[in-house]
Design a protein around this nucleic acid. Sequence first.
DNA 1: CATTTATGTAGCCATTTGCCTACGAATACT
DNA 2: AGTATTCGTAGGCAAATGGCTACATAAATG
Lengths: 106, 106
Amino acid sequence: MNLRRDIFQAIADPTRRAILLLVASQSMTAGGIAANFDTARPTVSKHLRILTECELLEQKKNGREIYYHLNPKKMKEIADFIEPFRKMWDERFNKLEAIMKKYKKK
Amino acid sequence: MNLRRDIFQAIADPTRRAILLLVASQSMTAGGIAANFDTARPTVSKHLRILTECELLEQKKNGREIYYHLNPKKMKEIADFIEPFRKMWDERFNKLEAIMKKYKKK
DNA sequence: CATTTATGTAGCCATTTGCCTACGAATACT
DNA sequence: AGTATTCGTAGGCAAATGGCTACATAAATG
């Protein structure tokens, strides 16, 4: 399981999306994360590796435990992709944009 | 090439993301879309099928031509996934939210 | 120091993916 | 009618994916 390591590929797997949501609020150990899934621990470990390699997650070692936490900057890259489409459905967004323009002028 | 047809899987492929961006501003025919890529036309056709099956694209037949156009509602589903993470990087978003609250109160 | 605990890695396997070359179906053109 | 054009589908293939069972490594624990 190598090659093709980009955020979109990473996000494509349901388990990996679940991991991201799980770690969003607080950092968790590899084991703690794995405990939330039915798949074998090494399988989750592989998912963590993929998420880490594409920098959606970051590690922080603490003794023999490894904590994983989200990297918001990388999450933003996904948002950036859909941003051009946003105006196509979100009127509220346009309204806010308009307000923001006024706000900046002041 | 069957099974597992969801937006995230669809978005995972670079060619398919390019197609979405291409069709964003205007609807295009299958051939017109394929002309923008180096891959064989049937390959692009398959990508179009996948995007259509997961409802990111919609077809509109016109004679022997088939026009593809974006379905913003489905694009929003991707945005919905990252929405919970947005506050982690976008201060501007928070600022706008604050302003919006005031705005609504009036 | 031997043992348990927390993780990652190796290697194997079935399934899925993306791509290509025919080929088929339907509509337009002469 | 016969031919050209626009598309989708079938089938085959190499590579990637996700999962599992050992096994390796490294840090706590008794």
